[in-house]
Nucleic acid binder design. Structure first.
Lengths: 306, 306
DNA sequence: ATAGTTATTGACAGCGCTGTCATTCGTCAA
DNA sequence: TTGACGAATGACAGCGCTGTCAATAACTAT
């Protein structure tokens, strides 16, 4: 709101004096910070780092900063972090999942900034949502196992958070659809997921359910570990045992044999979530509050019986 | 600095009114924010996420917040981010590497907050440093290859940042030590690292240098990809071809066959760096400004010729 | 009892911006 | 020339804390 001439003089003075605005003064006076808060359960899980990557790339170049909160899969930590973040009057908040505690949910609903829930779908988001249906995705993957001719698929899962439980439900749907009296072969644990654990669960499962002929793994780490364990036993991947992961990390297609997985669009989730916050903040149209990014089944050698 | 009675009354009022301090007002008045800035080149690279994990865990429970900057391996982005972060008067700054641009270096030297460089060693840190010698580590790994009886080891590397170059130098040291006239077999690229790329580089290298009998990989992703590619060719891992990675991600020991790697203490690096910042901020003794965390060679099946 | 200390409390300026409102300038029609 | 009106600019209160300093209270030693 200043004339061209004044603007030039100001810009010159800024350069001469090396003036840099003070974000805290700005935040205090405008009652609004340039921070976009992000709450994820783990900073090492590749699934979330891909989301982060999309997020950082989208926010780079804007005046906004991403501030990351690590909930470590603990609801009370999430609640504390929401409180801390909101006290900063953030430009927006992005939270992973739809399963916040009632207290967290209440905090989010009262917040006067745009909120995006990611990584899952729900018809009752706090505000906006970008995700996909874990249940549908898992069901599609499990149906693929039946379609490939496997008759006794099992589920292994670690760190059974609500999203993992929904994947298990999707697996269970497929089992029931194939045979209403079909047996639900599964082995899950609350331990953090790892490649090692995948191997361990595989071995234990085959003791528990020796007739298992295919495994749907809660995530790709487990699938990779299961494949290594199967190879260690001398099993023919695909032929003797089918293996399917979830998320389709880069390693799945590079593995030998390549491993079937369900691709999820994690980078896009981060990008879209950030874009929606930015749009809302700039009073632009953010589009439909709910975005379902779907998934893509990537069938590979590990479920090829031929 | 108030009496017990007053303190109780204040605490009660705080609870009644639901008072939450405003971080920006606090930052403005005290001329010091509670932000610890962290600059890393990638948010998806497991190497850095492990550091982050240690960092977040150490900072959790303190009044400090981590703010992450993603430099994307671009020096100018790093410089911009340093400027932005310093304008927030952070409690401290943690930057990956010792190879900042002169401008970045100058900014850091003038900063009036504790600074920790991580992931590398140098006898001339800006302030404090927690890292290890990539050159020594790579040399030790390469010497291991010779000790195992391999005679023509090669180096493959992607995303050749300064740390990778130092690893290549360490490899080269070992080659020269084994035979002053020894051939330096190597294939490097600036492309981002991936498991796929490991396989690709492996294949191209074996065309370029057909007598190669062992591969030292710049990182574990490449090593895993190289191993898959070798298996695809029907090579006996260890016997026909030795494979060694770098960083010792969890997958290395779980792989079949298990893959030799050089363990680096990434989590500890994050913890120590955070601890140092906190100590300095609280006017405690932060200890020696330079910490060398060393490394640990983990010899496994992939370099076992027996 | 008095002076000298130290512990405790209150008062308030000011951190560097933003948002609002008043003022001045420039332009155009009457 | 004058008045009216919109554009451009300046002035300044106030955002919610912190740090400092003054005032007061509670002791202690003389």
């Amino acid at each position: 709101m200043v004339s061209e001439g004044l603007r030039t003089r100001i810009t010159k003075a800024v350069a001469e004096l090396g003036y840099v605005p003070d974000p805290s003064a700005r935040a205090l006076a405008s009652r609004r910070s340039n921070v976009i808060g992000v709450l994820i359960p783990s900073v090492t899980n590749n699934v979330f780092t891909d989301v982060l990557s999309g997020l950082y790339d989208t926010v780079a170049g804007t005046p906004y900063n991403v501030q990351l909160g690590n909930t470590r899969y603990i609801a009370s930590v999430e609640e504390d972090l929401i409180r801390i973040f909101l006290s900063q009057r953030p430009a927006g908040l992005i939270v992973a999942g739809i399963d916040q505690s009632p207290a967290s949910r209440a905090l989010l609903e009262q917040a006067d900034c745009p909120i995006v829930q990611i990584m899952d779908v729900s018809n009752d988001p706090v505000d906006m949502l970008v995700g996909f249906s874990h249940r549908d995705a898992a069901r599609a993957a499990s149906e693929h196992l039946f379609a490939q001719g496997y008759r006794a698929p099992a589920f292994i899962g670690a760190r059974m958070d609500p999203r993992s439980e929904r994947r298990l439900a999707g697996f269970s749907d497929a089992i029931k659809a194939a045979d209403p009296n079909g047996k639900l072969r599964k082995l899950t644990t609350q331990e953090p997921s790892s490649v090692h654990l995948g191997g361990e669960l595989f071995d234990r499962l085959l003791t528990l359910e020796p007739d298992t002929d295919a495994i749907f793994c809660n995530n790709d780490d487990l699938a990779l570990g299961a494949q290594f364990a199967a190879q260690r036993r001398g099993l023919q991947i695909g032929k003797d045992i089918g293996i399917c992961g979830f998320n389709d990390l880069e390693v799945m297609s590079a593995a030998y044999p390549s491993i079937t997985s369900v691709r999820t669009f994690r980078r896009e989730m981060g990008e879209l979530a950030a874009r929606r916050i930015l749009a809302r903040t700039n009073d632009e149209d953010a589009g439909d509050p709910i975005v379902d990014l779907k998934w893509l089944l990537c069938a590979r050698d590990s479920t090829d019986r031929s």
